[in-house]
């Protein structure tokens, strides 16, 4: 018997993602992005993203079906990100997914976006070890999750108390005159720089601080102050060193806390996910520290770390296999869906 074919929808931010997964096999991952339209605003504008999702929706479904070489009528279940994310953006994908499920007469699974970022790794590296630790870092999230059972039980250990890690990258990039989104240009510039050149602060790393929470707002401000002081003094700004030192501070805190969480909870598998997991220094430092601590590190390829529809289909596929009941017909979107709700 062939495993069920699951169609996944992701519209929580600026990417319209539609993916097809059978079992743990990735069949297609079609993506449309409105990133270029947000660039001049220096951040994602929710209404622009929502309009773009509506325009892109049906064509992106067609691409996903064509890439997978299947028909819509072959689909056995539909999965969709129900939150967390931007409400207006979420609602386009949610309404589309509900309509496809109704029209194809198949069950609908609303899923948690963060849990989907963990599930996507199963498409590349096989069944998830449970329990696992997961570190999810993107423009919208910075979360440390304990995952006893990804289909039913995910526990939030810590999260950012202010900016998401990706937001800090965007803001520092702006200070350094680099384009939005800030992750790729900072990563590139940092390769020519010295990560130990400037000792930027590591937020929430004091002995009395919450051990698994993050803070990147102070770091961002420290970088801006440092750069502005040079500019006021008429001195050149060593862009590569600033980028490398900032990136080092982010990667240091994220990996130190993730490894500590693994140790404290007796977990020896760590999954990295989210757009910031594409950062080369974060990946390298995570590998180094996990190896030293005897932790198996799993990181999906950069393409699957950022938002996409395949990750939603991957979690949907897992829920079907685990016998989890589908969502209720009046499923809605929840912009602040808590992580312990895997399937709203």
């Amino acid at each position: 018997m062939t495993e069920p074919l699951v169609l996944g929808f992701e519209t929580s931010c600026d990417e319209t993602g539609v993916g097809l997964v059978r079992g743990r096999t990735l069949l297609s991952d079609a993506l449309a992005t409105s990133m270029a339209e947000h660039e001049r605003f220096g951040g994602v504008v929710p209404e622009i993203a929502s309009r773009a999702h509506l325009e892109a929706m049906v064509p992106t479904v067609h691409r996903a079906l064509a890439e997978a070489g299947v028909q819509a009528s072959d689909v056995d279940a539909v999965a969709v990100t129900a939150g967390p994310g931007l409400t207006g953006a979420l609602l386009v994908g949610l309404a589309a997914a509900k309509a496809y499920a109704l029209a194809l007469d198949v069950p609908l699974y609303g899923v948690n976006h963060l849990a989907a970022h963990v599930a996507v790794d199963e498409l590349q590296h096989g069944a998830l070890e449970e329990p696992s630790m997961a570190l999810l870092v993107s423009g919208g999230h910075s979360s440390l999750l304990l995952v006893p059972d990804l289909s039913r039980d995910v526990v939030s250990l810590g999260r950012t108390v202010d900016d998401a890690a990706g937001e800090a990258f965007d803001k520092v990039a702006r200070v350094l005159g680099m384009p939005f989104p800030g992750g790729p240009p900072i990563d590139r510039a940092a390769r020519e720089g010295d990560g130990s050149a400037i000792a930027f602060p590591r937020g929430l790393t004091g002995p009395r601080d919450a051990p698994y929470d993050f803070s990147f707002s102070g770091l961002k401000t420290a970088v801006a102050r440092w750069v502005e002081a040079r500019e006021r003094a008429g001195e050149p700004v060593p862009v590569a060193d600033v980028a490398a030192s900032f990136q080092e501070a982010v990667a240091d805190v994220l990996t130190a806390k993730a490894v500590r969480a693994c140790r404290d909870h007796g977990v020896d598998h760590l999954v990295l996910g989210g757009g910031v997991a594409a950062n080369s220094r974060l990946r390298a430092l995570a590998e180094e520290r996990c190896a030293a601590a005897g932790i198996v590190l799993r990181v999906p390829s950069p393409r699957l770390c950022t938002d996409n529809g395949a990750m939603v289909a991957a979690l949907g596929s897992r829920l079907v296999a685990a016998g989890v009941a589908p969502s209720a017909p009046d499923l809605g979107a929840d912009s602040s869906l808590p992580i312990d709700v895997v399937r709203p």
Binding site: M57, V58, A72, V92, A95, A96, A99, Y100, A103
Partner: peptide, 9 residues
């Protein structure tokens, strides 16, 4: 989007 999706499917 509901109308478009039902019609498409």
């Amino acid at each position: 989007v509901t109308a478009a999706a039902i019609a498409d499917a």
